[in-house]
Amino acid sequence: MDDLDTQNIELQLLLQAIHLKYGYDFKNYAKASIKRRILQRLERDNFKNISEMQHKILYDIDFFENLLLELSLNVAEMFRDPPIYLRLRHKIIPELRKFAHLKIWHVGCSTGEEVYSMAILLKEEGLYERSQIYATDMNKQLLKQAKDGIYDIKKLRQYTANYQKAGGLESFSDYYSAHYNHVVMNKSLKEHILFSDHNLATDGVFGEMNLIMARNILIYFNRELQNRALGLFFDSLSTGGFLCLGLKESIRFADCAKYFEEVHKDEKIYRKF
């Protein structure tokens, strides 16, 4: 056994320690990315090895929370992949219009960009008032930022371009107020959004959704955890409900795949029947 094997043992122990102490279970995440981030942190902070860092992680909550942010791989964007929103607007919204009340679950909502994009879409389509959006993430720090809805003004140029490509009907600047170096999303967008923490590795079903947005989370999971998460989505959807995954994600390998119809292949939109 060489140093690399020893390092892998330390990594495994560290993930177990994090689970026991803080409740976050990374056991079934794809390892490469987690290992890379841990080792980077190790190098940056001059720890001799993972075991030494584990001591710090267990005794220094701030240090852990900081690391958790890095492990969360949180990059979000408003109207990311604009063609998805075109599809939602033109194909999925007409189906949702048939319901008197709508329940929508944004899984792994990160800092909220995607949730506000959905709120804007629903407003423009006249469905917002009868919608309840549940936005969840395992990371409470990210959720807090999502709730605040404050974004760096430097990103707005791209978001505005995305909004337009996504078929936006208004002027994007109607939806926020600009301050010196940041923007604040309008309060009216937040009225029907409920933010709460939920971990796909350890928590349970979220009932009777009409639409679940779960984009770019499954890519970080191994097949076992993907299967668990997709099972949760299946159980949380009402019959005829829609599931939208990230562009590089698929339901193909999950046990519940046979209960879904692929309605828009390129946009990874599925429907439970």
Partner: peptide, 21 residues
């Protein structure tokens, strides 16, 4: 590697994709 994703290699010789910055 697909455009706009990081490509990572797992120790079981499979691929992962990631949207890390």
């Amino acid at each position: 590697a697909p455009p706009n994703y990081h490509l990572l290699i797992e120790e079981d010789y499979s691929f992962s994709l990631s949207l890390e910055p």
